[in-house]
């Protein structure tokens, strides 16, 4: 239903009443300074014009408003533009314009994109993209072992699988690192040459390689040994009680010109009682003589054992649980001989 806008100099209530008396429905009545504006159905326009003319009222009818579709049909530029846009969109939807790469960590993305672009050259029609050809091009890169290519929308998605670094396999036989008593052997590959209870020496083959490289672990009891010789007596330097003192200043230490053949030195800093502040050093020479003294082995035994076991433990490749340790004391002509043993179960294979 088309409506026409009518402008008149009559007042809104007056016009409304006139139209209603004539059986005409009025829409959108709007008051204006010199009258009013309203709409009526297109078929009522001649009647409205006649009524207003009879009442000496001005009547201005707006131009006929064409429907949106009718107006749109007359716009050739719009239609041409629309067709061009549709053509471009259709062409664009059939083209590949982007390359997306994933799965690479070490190989740079640019290198893969370059390899793909070398084959197809962007932009390109989707039908011209040959996935097998692209896969061959991507796999041509040295560090890539496999690739897959799929085309979605305007993008070529390239998923690559990089070549793994070659595994470092042990070569040759598995040998023993220690002299040991074998307690257990686990063989993954190769031929086992020892069994639990066998004794092996350092460098002995535990697992021999066959057509495959030898792989496995061997455990055994290993003994670490230390010994100490403590004589009954020893010659020691003992102070006689005689001493000489020399005081000197400066950096140069004076030579000893005293009477002692054997002596010990003690050096301290001292401040002589002088009117000027002066720093000096005091050297005390103590006369000593050689004297044979008896060694109290029983008193020193614990201390010696502790030091020796500590030394063995420091030399071990790691801390071990439940180690066994023992020692033997042999008394010979003029001395005590101490043998210390440390036993642990540990991995002996290299």
């Amino acid at each position: 239903m088309n409506k026409r806008l009518i402008k008149t100099d009559g007042k809104a209530p007056f016009v409304g009443k006139l139209m209603n008396l004539a059986g005409i429905t009025v829409f959108n009545v709007r008051k204006e300074e010199d009258g009013c504006v309203f709409s009526v159905k297109e078929k009522d326009v001649p009647a409205v014009e006649k009524i207003l003319c009879e009442k000496n009222k001005k009547c201005v009818v707006s131009e006929k408003k064409e429907s949106f579709f009718k107006r749109a049909l007359n716009r050739s530029g719009l239609w041409i533009g629309l067709l061009v846009v549709m053509a471009v969109a259709a062409l664009f939807s059939r083209c590949v314009t982007k390359i997306s790469v994933n799965g690479n960590e070490n190989v740079p993305t640019e290198a893969i994109v370059e390899a793909v672009a070398r084959e197809i050259g962007l932009p390109v029609m989707k039908s011209a993209v040959d996935p097998d050809k692209l896969i061959r091009a991507v796999c041509g890169i040295e560090e890539i072992s496999d690739a897959s290519v799929r085309v979605e929308g305007n993008t070529v998605f390239v998923t690559v699988l990089e070549r793994l670094p070659a595994a470092e396999l042990p070569h040759g036989d598995v040998k023993s690192k220690y002299d040991a008593l074998v307690t257990r052997v686990i063989v993954y590959e190769g031929e086992c040459l020892v069994k639990a209870g066998d004794t092996v020496k350092t460098g002995d083959v535990l697992i021999k390689e066959t057509d495959k490289s030898a792989k496995g672990e061997a455990y055994g009891r290993v003994w670490f040994h230390e010994n100490a010789i403590i004589p009954f007596s020893e010659i020691a330097l003992v102070r006689t009680g005689r001493e000489e003192t020399v005081i000197y200043t400066g950096d140069k230490k004076p030579e000893y010109r005293g009477k002692f053949d054997l002596y010990e030195i003690e050096e301290t800093e001292t401040v002589p009682k002088l009117p000027i502040p002066l720093k000096a050093r005091k050297i005390t020479y103590f006369e000593v003589e050689e004297k044979r003294i008896e060694i109290d082995f029983e008193a020193q035994k614990e201390d010696i054992l502790r030091k020796k076991f500590d030394r063995i433990e420091k030399a071990l490749p790691g801390p071990f649980e439940k180690p066994k340790k023992w020692f033997f004391i042999k008394t010979v002509d003029k001395m005590h001989v101490l043998d210390l043993y440390y036993e642990i179960e540990m991995k002996i294979s290299e």
Binding site: A12, G16, M19, N20, L21, G23, I24, T25, V26, F27, N28, V29, R30
Partner: peptide, 8 residues
Amino acid sequence: LVVREISD
């Protein structure tokens, strides 16, 4: 306020 429609 707008008179949207007026008939008899």
